[in-house]
Amino acid sequence: MDSLVVLVLCLSCLLLLSLWRQSSGRGKLPPGPTPLPVIGNILQIGIKDISKSLTNLSKVYGPVFTLYFGLKPIVVLHGYEAVKEALIDLGEEFSGRGIFPLAERANRGFGIVFSNGKKWKEIRRFSLMTLRNFGMGKRSIEDRVQEEARCLVEELRKTKASPCDPTFILGCAPCNVICSIIFHKRFDYKDQQFLNLMEKLNENIKILSSPWIQICNNFSPIIDYFPGTHNKLLKNVAFMKSYILEKVKEHQESMDMNNPQDFIDCFLMKMEKEKHNQPSEFTIESLENTAVDLFGAGTETTSTTLRYALLLLLKHPEVTAKVQEEIERVIGRNRSPCMQDRSHMPYTDAVVHEVQRYIDLLPTSLPHAVTCDIKFRNYLIPKGTTILISLTSVLHDNKEFPNPEMFDPHHFLDEGGNFKKSKYFMPFSAGKRICVGEALAGMELFLFLTSILQNFNLKSLVDPKNLDTTPVVNGFASVPPFYQLCFIPV
């Protein structure tokens, strides 16, 4: 009986604490739906499609509103004006990374994606500088992407125009580009180590996009005490870190300090320079996690976009025909596509942009946080508050993009057929937390897609009208449904 009384008292205290925290903070924060004790607004949000729920709530509470995930307040920004004001106009104040408990377990605050403060700034600055020195957006990395595009075309030829699921092959190409940047090595598509790495990356994007992960991140005790797919994700990350550590040891034994070959060499050189400046942010643990982040951000996002792009091109054969006509006119058949071609191919450029806009790969991006107490639109948001960005509300804005739910390359073309930029184009987020590999991803999408369409016609196994382009999961990332196609050599 005594234990029951204690339990009831504990629960009562928890409920009172929950109510007090919510009521004391709500006077400062933007308005929002009334949260339930302990669980907050979790029942009012469709976990399978958070973005749709945010759109519905914005119609009631406006472009800036507050939700509670458990006891934790989260300020939501919906629509271009609110997102721009926060991420661009007040970029420094909104540059923090929001709480992501599962990532905390995986990387302990290291790396480039989930770190904060001085650690994040130094690692991000170093990573950007190193990638630029190796030619991100310049010639040397373009050579690597072109080489991988040629290998991709050869792998597709091996399908002999038979029906195939493109998931694996389209994942190999961007993964190999990242391998060449980090390890100075590309792998054969049949290499077992490479296959294991690909498998872990593919599993992780599916797990991260599941409703279960949303629950884990908002009720963090689940991570330590409950079984579930989150444990598989943590094991996959541990596998990748151990693999990278092996490569780091190989580099330490063979590195030429006067001739760095890749990202690992550059990081080890930085560690050597910083060894007298303790404590340094440049450690082996930081290198492991930064490399894992580059793999995660640079492989599955690009391969998922490529997979979605081919599905949309199957669905819209008239678009595919126009792209192939432009390829034939500008590039021809006797040389590989290059980035200089893009400025002469406005329709193809528009298609690449429209694919990214339409699929809305990361509907709410990753959570941000404010780095200080900030007054925002007459609300006071306390330091450390998590900020949720609705990228969907920007990419699918119906004023900027008429009929935003329709796939239409003319969203990025003017009346004369010239490519038209849009400030609403934010597939990689915006501001200080914009994806480090934005330029690389854009290069890969253009070169891989043009190389495929230069060499193959795409054949659907069903009537294009019957192809479903609805994402199968739409949590962290929008993942396309399973499909097969035939690559018919031109």
Rank of each mutant, 00 (worst) to 15 (best):
D262K: 02
S127T: 15
T386R: 08
I452G: 01
G40T: 03
L361I: 08
L197C: 01
A149T: 02
L208P: 03
N418T: 08
N418E: 11
R26D: 11
E400G: 10
K383R: 10
D89L: 11
E328Q: 14
I88F: 09
L208T: 10
N218Q: 14
P221G: 14
S365H: 04
N196A: 14
P260N: 08
A173H: 01
D188C: 05
K465R: 11
I389R: 00
T34E: 07
D191L: 01
V6G: 13
C486S: 14
V473T: 13
N41H: 04
D89I: 08
K383Q: 07
F401D: 02
P481I: 01
P489C: 01
C10S: 13
V292L: 14
C10V: 14
E147I: 07
L77P: 01
Q146V: 11
S336H: 11
N107Q: 15
T305N: 05
G135C: 10
I123P: 15
F407E: 00
E85D: 10
D165K: 00
L197D: 02
P471A: 07
R329I: 10
G298T: 00
G442A: 14
R97F: 01
I99T: 14
E104D: 14
E246S: 10
Q22S: 13
D165G: 01
R125Y: 05
G70M: 03
F482T: 15
S303T: 06
S23K: 14
E328G: 14
K72S: 08
R105I: 11
C338K: 13
P317G: 08
F412V: 00
M339R: 04
H344P: 04
V153Y: 00
L485Q: 00
T392M: 07
K200Y: 05
K158P: 00
P166Y: 00
L311S: 01
S451E: 04
P31N: 08
N466I: 13
E326C: 00
H344C: 11
Q146A: 09
D49V: 03
L201R: 05
M426T: 11
S95V: 08
T167H: 11
R150C: 08
I434D: 15
L87H: 05
R433A: 01
A238L: 09
K121L: 08
V370L: 15
A173N: 00
P317S: 07
L131G: 06
T364H: 12
T392V: 06
P63T: 09
M257H: 14
L445F: 10
M426L: 12
I284R: 06
A161V: 03
M129A: 13
P481F: 00
Y61A: 02
L43S: 08
P31Q: 07
P489I: 00
H276L: 10
L395M: 12
V5C: 15
S24N: 13
T302L: 07
T159C: 04
K160D: 12
V352I: 14
F407G: 00
G98C: 11
I205V: 10
K421L: 09
V490G: 04
L311I: 06
N418S: 11
F401P: 01
T299Q: 04
G298C: 07
E354R: 00
E326K: 01
G137L: 08
Y483R: 01
V237I: 08
E104M: 14
R124F: 03
I141W: 05
A161G: 15
K28A: 12
R342G: 04
F126R: 03
I141F: 08
I141E: 01
V83I: 15
F425P: 02
T385I: 04
N398V: 11
I488H: 08
K270D: 06
V6T: 13
T302W: 00
H78G: 07
Q192S: 12
D224Y: 13
V330T: 12
L43Y: 09
V319R: 01
T385G: 03
E199F: 07
S51P: 13
S303G: 08
K465C: 09
L36M: 11
S115G: 10
A238T: 10
E142F: 03
E318H: 10
I123V: 15
S18G: 14
N334I: 12
K432S: 08
I47A: 13
V8E: 11
A149C: 09
K200T: 06
M443Y: 07
F194G: 01
M271V: 07
N259D: 11
F425I: 06
K138D: 13
T385P: 01
F168L: 07
M136L: 12
S336F: 14
L90D: 14
L54S: 05
S303D: 01
I223G: 12
K235V: 05
S343W: 10
E148P: 00
I434R: 15
I50W: 14
L440G: 00
K200M: 08
R125H: 09
L314I: 10
R433Y: 00
I205H: 07
T299G: 05
I488S: 09
S478T: 12
L440S: 01
L128C: 11
K121P: 04
C338R: 10
G384F: 04
S220R: 14
S460A: 14
T450P: 00
Q193C: 10
C435E: 00
P427I: 05
P30D: 00
S429G: 15
D143I: 09
Q44T: 13
L447S: 04
K28H: 12
P489H: 01
N277P: 07
V5F: 14
T302Y: 01
K48F: 09
L485D: 00
A350N: 00
C216E: 13
S58M: 05
F425N: 09
E438Y: 11
L413P: 00
T299H: 06
S58D: 06
R342P: 03
H78P: 01
F401V: 04
N41I: 03
Q44S: 12
L461Q: 10
P489R: 02
K423N: 08
I182R: 00
Q146E: 10
I141M: 12
E405G: 11
L453R: 01
L314P: 01
V76D: 01
S422R: 10
G46H: 10
R377G: 11
N474T: 12
K383Y: 03
Y243T: 08
F487R: 00
L29H: 04
G417V: 04
Q484I: 02
R124Y: 02
K465I: 11
E104H: 10
E300V: 15
G98D: 13
R335I: 05
N218V: 15
R144M: 12
T167F: 06
N56S: 13
L413V: 04
H410T: 14
P163Y: 06
R335D: 06
N378R: 07
K185V: 05
F226M: 12
L361T: 08
D143R: 12
P409N: 02
P404T: 07
L90A: 15
Q44G: 11
F194S: 02
N403C: 10
G40C: 01
R108T: 13
F446K: 01
F183I: 02
W212F: 10
V479P: 06
N474I: 05
Y189T: 02
H396T: 15
N107V: 08
D188I: 02
L449I: 07
E122V: 09
P317E: 09
E199W: 05
E199Y: 10
V462N: 07
H230R: 13
I207F: 07
F219R: 06
I207N: 04
P101Y: 09
T320E: 08
Y379N: 04
V113F: 10
G442I: 15
K72Y: 08
K190W: 09
Q146L: 10
S460N: 03
L314A: 08
F407D: 00
D224N: 15
N107S: 15
V60C: 13
L362M: 08
F412N: 01
L152P: 00
D262R: 04
T386A: 06
S254F: 09
K423A: 10
I359S: 12
V355Y: 00
V5Y: 13
L90F: 14
E326L: 01
S162W: 05
G111D: 06
F100Y: 13
L268I: 07
T283F: 06
F110K: 11
R139F: 11
L131A: 07
E354P: 02
F134N: 11
D341Y: 08
E92I: 09
F487G: 00
K190R: 12
H411T: 01
N418Y: 08
L268S: 04
V319D: 07
L313C: 09
S3R: 12
G40R: 02
I47S: 15
R157M: 09
A321E: 10
D414N: 06
A161M: 10
E400M: 09
T301F: 00
K235N: 11
C266D: 06
I213H: 15
L306Y: 01
R433N: 00
L445R: 03
N107H: 13
S53V: 10
F412C: 01
Q22D: 10
D262I: 02
I359G: 09
K399V: 10
I50G: 08
S53I: 08
N116S: 12
F412H: 03
R342D: 00
Q193G: 12
G40H: 03
K375N: 09
Q44R: 09
D397S: 11
G437E: 03
V6R: 10
N289D: 05
E300N: 08
K241I: 02
G437A: 11
L449G: 02
Y225P: 08
E154M: 07
L9E: 14
W120G: 08
T167S: 11
N466D: 15
S162D: 09
P101D: 11
C266E: 09
E250V: 06
P166I: 00
E148L: 00
P409C: 02
P464G: 04
